[in-house]
Amino acid sequence: MTDPLRIAMIAACPFPWPRGTPIRIHRIAEAVARRGHEVHVVTYHLGQDLADPPFVVHRIRDISFYRRTSPGPTVRKLCLLDPMLARLLGRLHHEIGFDLVHAHHYEGLLVASHALRGTPIVYDAHTLLTSELPTYRLGLPRAGVRAVASWLDRYVPRRADRIIAVSETIRHALTTVGASAPERVHVIPNGVEWERFPVEQGITAGGPTVIFAGNLAPYQGVDLMLEAFAQVHARLPQARLMIVTDSPFTPFEALARRLGVRAAVDLNRATFPEQPAILAAAAVAVNPRVRCDGIPQKLLNYMAAGLPVATFESSAGPLRHEVTGLRVPDGNTAAMADALERLLTDRALARTLGDAARDQARREFSWDQVAARVEDVYQKAIAEAR
């Protein structure tokens, strides 16, 4: 363990919140604090309650007319919430004197670099805007959005002293476009609290339930999931699809009805602590995201739960085909349907894949391991600033 540091962790998002970015911030803050450091999470006014966290949470003042918790940029976030976050960070730095800022995602990095001068900044790159930004409905020409995203990917990371990338894909992309020198980018994937999940999992459940847990943003591939499930349901009429989310299903109601599966889709607004028990009641997990530069947090949760997973290739992360899950070509809903049907009907295969996935999650993706590696990056950034 190194000497204790005073760390500001920037969360330009609802915090805590049961989706990928807030979960990564939460667990890193928790694990780093338990290594003896003084961690201050600086975040929006939105978030769930925390029971005795080992870190301090500082929020901007409440904005009564802004209650959006879904991912993606908005004018109010960029022009109101983020400037408020920068002012809060500046004031806290004056009072506390942070040794380092750990800024998550692009907005966190922009906030940190505008608020502080001379304090080392570690940028946590969860994704590439080149792949994510065009998926949002921004009301702008798609070509223009791609151009802006490409520019941001190239130039904004240069504001950081060190970069943490959640995957080798992100590291390669940032170094290729000249956003950073290769030796300044460190790959540290997400972790997962595998011990939170029951040992006996949903492959012993009575009914054939396919589960998806996550937000319903456009990049998640919910339309592809529904199309694949419709094919499964036609062959296995007793099959059901459970969607665990806090997002409205309204954008997909018409599609589900047109496909004839709306009555077989169950919506569950469970909190994050409730999710392990819900995952345990499912038979198979599905990851329908077509492109993901990092590793989807839901995928690690599925693995920790010992669930057999069917996933599209580009978002499969550490899953090995026929070893810890089934990978199918991106966007091929027929292949996804075949994989889901196979896992629902071949219980021996499902158990073998699920057990192997849980073992991999336990061995390779603990948050304690993540925190130790993050701490090493902190030390490198601080040493260079002296």
Score class of each variant (00 low, 15 high):
5 L>V: 02
5 L>W: 05
5 L>R: 10
9 M>D: 01
14 P>T: 10
20 G>Q: 02
26 H>T: 03
37 H>M: 04
38 E>M: 07
41 V>C: 10
43 T>N: 08
44 Y>V: 00
50 L>H: 04
57 V>K: 04
73 P>T: 12
74 T>G: 05
74 T>K: 03
86 A>D: 06
90 G>Y: 01
96 I>A: 05
96 I>L: 12
102 H>K: 01
103 A>Y: 09
105 H>S: 13
106 Y>C: 05
108 G>L: 07
112 A>H: 05
115 A>Q: 04
122 V>E: 10
123 Y>L: 01
128 L>R: 14
132 E>N: 03
140 L>Q: 12
141 P>K: 06
147 A>V: 03
158 R>V: 00
161 D>A: 11
162 R>N: 00
163 I>P: 02
170 I>F: 06
178 G>P: 07
183 E>Y: 03
193 E>N: 14
194 W>H: 14
201 Q>R: 13
202 G>V: 10
209 T>R: 15
214 G>D: 10
216 L>K: 07
217 A>C: 04
218 P>V: 12
222 V>Q: 04
229 F>C: 09
233 H>E: 12
233 H>R: 15
241 L>W: 11
243 I>R: 06
243 I>L: 14
249 F>T: 08
257 R>P: 01
263 A>V: 02
270 A>F: 04
272 F>T: 00
292 C>I: 00
297 Q>V: 15
298 K>P: 01
298 K>E: 10
302 Y>L: 01
308 P>W: 03
310 A>I: 06
313 E>C: 08
323 V>F: 02
326 L>P: 12
326 L>T: 14
332 N>K: 12
333 T>Q: 13
336 M>W: 11
339 A>W: 05
342 R>F: 01
349 L>W: 04
352 T>N: 08
355 D>K: 03
358 R>C: 02
366 S>K: 06
380 K>I: 14
381 A>E: 05
382 I>F: 03
